Deep mutational scan, measured.
Amino acid sequence: MPEGSASLQLAVGDRVVYPNQGVCRVSAIDVKEVAGQKLTFVTMRREEDGAVVMVPEGKVLAIGVRKVASAE
């Protein structure tokens, strides 16, 4: 991610809310080559049905992904 860009610090195992998809758990953060460029992807699995969603790390905030609020 370019320096100075806002990002959401995620780790494998974090629970997040993905708008219009529901609650997901981060299952992987991997670098993949797409069209000759190396990009970091956040892979999330929906808790409702296990569907897998992959989002480029740089788009996580723009999409509206946020961490699940704690009970505290």
Score class of each variant (00 low, 15 high):
Met1Val: 13
Glu3Val: 12
Ser5Thr: 13
Ala6Arg: 11
Ala6His: 13
Ser7Lys: 13
Leu8Gln: 09
Leu8Trp: 09
Leu10Pro: 02
Ala11Tyr: 07
Ala11Lys: 14
Val12Pro: 04
Gly13Pro: 00
Gly13Gln: 01
Gly13Ala: 01
Val16Glu: 01
Val17Trp: 15
Val17Asn: 07
Tyr18Gly: 06
Tyr18Cys: 09
Pro19Val: 04
Pro19Gln: 06
Asn20Gly: 15
Asn20Thr: 10
Gly22His: 04
Val23Cys: 00
Val23Ser: 03
Val23Asp: 02
Cys24Lys: 00
Cys24Gln: 00
Arg25Ile: 15
Arg25Gln: 09
Val26Trp: 00
Val26Met: 00
Val26Pro: 00
Ala28Arg: 10
Asp30Ile: 14
Asp30Pro: 01
Val31His: 06
Lys32Met: 14
Lys32Asp: 03
Lys32Ala: 07
Glu33Cys: 05
Glu33Ser: 07
Glu33Arg: 06
Val34Asn: 04
Val34Cys: 01
Val34Trp: 07
Gly36Val: 01
Gly36Ala: 02
Lys38Ile: 10
Lys38Thr: 08
Leu39Val: 15
Leu39Phe: 09
Leu39Gly: 05
Thr40Asp: 01
Phe41Arg: 02
Val42Thr: 00
Val42Trp: 02
Val42Met: 02
Thr43Val: 14
Thr43Asp: 02
Thr43Arg: 04
Met44Ser: 00
Arg45Gly: 02
Glu47Gln: 03
Glu48Ser: 14
Glu48Leu: 13
Asp49Ala: 02
Asp49Val: 02
Asp49Met: 02
Asp49Gln: 01
Ala51Gln: 10
Ala51Thr: 09
Ala51Arg: 11
Val52Met: 11
Val52His: 05
Val52Trp: 06
Val52Ala: 06
Val53Arg: 03
Val53Met: 14
Met54Trp: 06
Val55Ser: 03
Pro56Ala: 12
Glu57Trp: 15
Glu57Lys: 08
Glu57Phe: 15
Gly58Phe: 14
Gly58Cys: 08
Gly58Leu: 11
Lys59Gly: 09
Val60Cys: 05
Val60Tyr: 10
Leu61Arg: 14
Ala62Tyr: 06
Ala62Trp: 05
Ala62Val: 10
Ala62His: 08
Ile63Asp: 15
Gly64Pro: 05
Val65Ala: 06
Arg66Trp: 05
Arg66Ile: 15
Lys67Arg: 09
Lys67Gln: 08
Val68Asp: 06
Ser70Met: 10
Ala71Val: 12
Ala71Phe: 10
Ala71Ser: 12
Ala71Thr: 11
Ala71Leu: 11
Glu72Phe: 08
Glu72Asp: 13
